[in-house]
Simulated scan of single mutants.
Amino acid sequence: MITIYHNPRCKKSREGLQLLEEANVEFEIVKYLNEVPSTNEIESILEKLNKTPIELVRTNEKIWKENFKGKDLSDQDIIEAMHSFPKLIERPIVINNQKAVIGRPPEQIKSII
């Protein structure tokens, strides 16, 4: 089953969702701002993406700049920040079994469908 971590207010996320709809595949939508992933889920997503925690952070977000930028944070600190402030998580994230991509650009999603 394919899962998309989606923010309806984000243009790239909407484009990623549209791409999945057009591919005519079965998928599940997780509106991660409402259904906040646990720290364990974030760790699992990072493993599937093969990325470090900081690579999943939207570092231009006001929350990041005001609360975390320039601080000496461990990977676990960053994961906890994403859990506490899910707006910091890059989007959309699409997972298909043990593979995952960040849909920026949305065309990257095609590589795991």
Score class of each variant (00 low, 15 high):
113 I>C: 03
18 Q>N: 09
21 E>P: 00
2 I>S: 06
52 T>Q: 12
48 K>Y: 11
51 K>N: 09
37 P>W: 13
71 K>I: 07
57 V>K: 04
60 N>H: 14
80 E>P: 01
68 F>I: 05
81 A>Y: 00
112 I>M: 11
42 I>P: 13
42 I>C: 07
46 L>F: 04
28 E>A: 13
71 K>Q: 11
34 N>C: 01
67 N>T: 02
47 E>N: 13
88 L>W: 09
51 K>T: 03
81 A>F: 00
34 N>R: 13
33 L>R: 13
110 K>R: 15
100 A>V: 10
112 I>K: 04
71 K>V: 05
82 M>F: 10
62 K>W: 01
18 Q>H: 05
80 E>D: 11
10 C>E: 00
8 P>N: 09
47 E>H: 09
2 I>F: 09
77 D>N: 12
77 D>K: 07
42 I>R: 09
29 I>E: 11
74 S>W: 01
85 F>Y: 15
110 K>L: 14
63 I>D: 02
14 R>Y: 01
73 L>M: 07
31 K>F: 09
1 M>L: 10
75 D>M: 04
29 I>A: 02
76 Q>M: 14
76 Q>W: 00
51 K>G: 03
37 P>F: 08
90 E>V: 00
67 N>D: 00
17 L>I: 07
107 E>N: 12
31 K>C: 05
55 E>A: 10
3 T>C: 03
16 G>V: 09
95 I>H: 04
37 P>C: 08
49 L>E: 05
24 N>D: 14
78 I>V: 15
56 L>Q: 01
100 A>H: 09
3 T>P: 00
61 E>W: 01
74 S>D: 12
28 E>T: 15
74 S>P: 10
66 E>N: 11
15 E>F: 04
63 I>Y: 03
12 K>G: 10
31 K>W: 03
6 H>P: 03
95 I>R: 03
101 V>I: 13
51 K>Q: 12
63 I>S: 01
20 L>Y: 04
48 K>T: 03
24 N>S: 14
28 E>C: 09
2 I>D: 02
21 E>A: 07
16 G>H: 10
12 K>M: 11
113 I>L: 15
65 K>R: 12
48 K>H: 10
23 A>E: 14
59 T>H: 05
19 L>F: 05
47 E>S: 15
19 L>T: 08
68 F>M: 04
63 I>N: 00
85 F>H: 15
